[in-house]
Amino acid sequence: GYSESFSGGPTVPELILQLLQLEPEEDQVRARILGCLQEPAKNRSDQPAAFGLLCRMADQTFISIVDWARRCMVFKELEVADQMSLLQNCWSELLVFDHIYRQIQYGKEGSILLVTGQEVELSTVAAQAGSLLHNLVLRAQELVLQLHALQLDRQEFVCLKFLILFSLDVKFLSNHSLVKDAQEKANAALLDYTLCHYPHCADKFQQLLLCLVEVRALSVQAKEYLYHKHLGNEMPRNNLLIEMLQARQT
C-alpha cells in the first residue's frame, strides 16, 4: 500500500506512514525518563552515582521501547510468549539503534546526547568511563558517521527499527505466518522507499541492511560490557537489562 502524494513527490509506503505515527515524541520520552530518574533509587548501592543513573536511564529507555513495541502493528496481535521471544532476541539492538539515531539527529562529533537531553563530551567519556565503555561509544560513533553519510532519514529509521523487532527466525515463534508476513512487508517497504526517494543511491537498501549487521555487533559488545559489570557486582539490583541478559533465549 502507498499513500497518495498530494505534492506530486514520491509516495511513502503505508507501512512506513503507520510506523511514523507510532513513533514516540522525543520530548515526551525525555520528560518521562527525567521524572523517573528524579525518584530516589529503590536499591541503594555502592556504584558511583553517575553509573547508577546511566543504568536506570538505560532501563527506562528500554521500557519506552517496550511501550513502542506494544503499540506496533502485528506485534500487538501476538501472544505474550511470542512478544517476549521477539524482544529477548533484539532488546540490545533496539537500545543501540535508539542511541545511534539520537546521535545522528544531534549531529555533533565531539560529544554524545543522552536520552535525558544531557550532552557528554567524548573527552569526558575517555577520562571517566573506562576503556570498555569508551571503545563501545567510539565504535557507535563510527556507525553514526556511516549512517549520516548514507543520509539515513526518519522514514528509514522507523522501518529499520521495525525490521530489528521482527528479526527473529520465525521457527522460534508460535505465530509464524504473521511474523514472516511482517518481515516481508517491512523489507519490501524499505526497498521501495529507498529506490523511490534515493534513486541516485541504488544500493542504499543493501547499505542500510549492512548497517544493521554492525548494530548487532555493537549490541553483542554492549552485552559483554554489561556482563562484565554484572560479574564485578557493579550493576544495581533489580536491573532490567541484567534480567534480559540472564534470561533464556526464546
Partner: peptide, 23 residues
Amino acid sequence: PCQGPAGRPAILYTLLSPSLMAS
C-alpha cells in the same frame, strides 16, 4: 512479585502482560 514463564524475564513479562498492565 510477578513471575514470568520459566527462564523468562519477569519484569518484561509484567510490562507485556495485558492483564497485569490493566491492574
